[in-house]
């Protein structure tokens, strides 16, 4: 039930991100990148194997004998978030450089790349 809901939300988020990516407005495209990467992070998070009851801490798990959450996808997400932030900053810098060079934020007006 919750899985289904999560899957729906992730795919909706992904679709929204893709739609934004396809905008002519470069700022919106950049926001689309951020949304898509959020959707992927969420997917990673949801793919954890355990229904966590406590955080993945060695001392907590030992004391309470309750199921800790899956640490592995969390470590992956940690990396993904940081890298995603870096990539997003580069995307934004590109948007800005495009605006300087072509005097526009409309991706359809940026055609000089082919030469």
């Amino acid at each position: 039930m919750i899985e289904l809901f999560t899957a729906l939300a992730i795919s909706a988020l992904f679709a929204i991100g893709v739609f934004q990516l396809l905008r002519r407005n470069l700022i919106r495209s950049a926001m689309g990148v951020a949304i898509v990467s959020n959707a992927i992070n969420l997917f990673l998070l949801a793919s954890g194997a355990y229904r966590g009851e406590v955080a993945a801490y060695a001392n907590l798990a030992g004391q309470t004998a309750r199921q800790p959450s899956d640490a592995l996808p969390q470590a992956l997400i940690l990396t993904a978030i940081v890298i995603g932030m870096g990539a997003f900053a580069v995307v934004l810098a590109l948007v800005y450089v495009l605006s300087l060079r072509y005097k526009t934020s409309d991706s359809d007006e940026v055609k000089g790349l082919r030469h």
């Binding site: 998070l45 954890g48 955080a55 978030i81």
Partner: peptide, 8 residues
């Protein structure tokens, strides 16, 4: 937080 995954 609900996961719970406080670090991330």
């Amino acid at each position: 937080i609900l996961e719970p995954a406080p670090d991330i």
